[in-house]
Design a protein around this nucleic acid. Structure first.
Lengths: 196, 196
DNA sequence: CGAAGATGTTGTCAAATGACAACATCTTTT
DNA sequence: AAAAGATGTTGTCATTTGACAACATCTTCG
């Protein structure tokens, strides 16, 4: 169960984890299984666990006054899920996180995470790299959301994340891009005409 | 010149910097002055320095095919500026960073930054906290950009960053929010009618 | 002072998008 | 198999926003 996580950690660092480190890591990450539609986090609750996705897919979303859902993140294998704000500040989350497929997670508490950050240099490095990537990805998404038109954003999304287009239904992707499902449907029809 | 930076670093950690650490920090951060409209980073160049703003204000923006500028960040005293992606990957930046006012910076190279991260625990902690905050801020901005209407986004911006509204012209704020200056002008007129 | 530039508002029109609903498929559940 | 639910498309109409231009201030700089 932990092998994909260990690979992930090693992938972020030049040295290899020692066997003591591996044991420590395996002791703090608790495997949990989620069924389709099962919630990992519900709005109003504190996010007690951060989690590494071993297998499956999840979505993080907010719900506005009108009851409309807005997709914040779509995540699959080898990604992390959790609400960082709630996790570190211990405040009630404004987001929901739900399994979209049968999902295997490796969960870790805040205390354990802080503990292994200090104990294992590779983890500290991994976090820095993760934050790094996240920073850049968010920057790009933000840039495209204020700079590009909806059809360009979708085109870009399709190009960068073809597996997501296959794996998540269209209305979730529309919501991720900040448009309605009808609008995305029309954008796709028009872009088809162009290429044909 | 460095006092505001030292305060900033101490503000992120419970312990206080030792005098050796202070000397090391002062040796790697080089003060630089920028005049209004002077570029700190130009699209196509590698971002060789990250910088702490001691005094002044800067803007980071992209320019699209049509020549339209899009504000990515507006930054003032006690904020950091730089293109993290270009800085760490040493790739040409797609952004411009320009002084909007007379600005005093404390700049640091990537090599020096990595060096002091390993040497000074408080710096490592500061970076983690910075990334943390950035992560959360970006998450919120992203959430609002896909969930809220333009008038709500402006209202929120005004509420959270009143000093920015005073300090930067309206068309930059419009661009930051992802709308045109005309549109923002109209949104403001309508919101005035509501409150009156 | 006068010219040039920056900033902000408004008008007009077109394009993009949302809201809402109906409908057709397709999948899952009972 | 039948029913229920999820997904995706399309139509209609209203609203928002963008594009573009004109204009009024206001500031900056020679």
């Amino acid at each position: 169960m932990h092998t994909s996580l260990l690979k992930y950690i090693n992938g972020h660092t030049s040295s290899v984890l020692s066997s003591e480190e591996v044991i420590l890591i395996e002791s703090v990450f608790k495997p949990k299984k989620f069924k389709k539609k099962q919630y990992f986090l519900q709005k109003g609750d504190v996010c007690k666990y951060y989690a590494f996705i071993v297998k499956g897919a999840m979505r993080q979303f907010s719900v506005d006054d009108k009851g409309t859902e807005h997709i914040i993140h779509l995540s699959v294998e080898n990604w992390w899920v959790g609400d960082r704000e709630s996790y570190t500040a211990l405040t009630p989350s404004v987001y929901n996180i739900e399994a979209w497929e049968e999902t295997d997670l490796l969960t870790i508490t805040k205390a354990d995470f802080f503990f292994i950050i200090d104990k294992i240099p590779a983890i500290a490095l991994m976090i820095r790299t993760m934050d790094q990537r996240n920073f850049i990805a968010n920057q790009r998404r933000l840039n495209s959301s204020i700079s590009d038109t909806a059809d360009k954003r979708y085109e870009e999304f399709e190009r960068c994340h073809p597996e997501f287009v296959r794996r998540f239904p269209q209305h979730l992707i529309a919501s991720f891009l900040g448009i309605t499902k009808s609008s995305l449907s029309r954008i796709r029809r028009l872009s088809l005409k162009k290429t044909v």
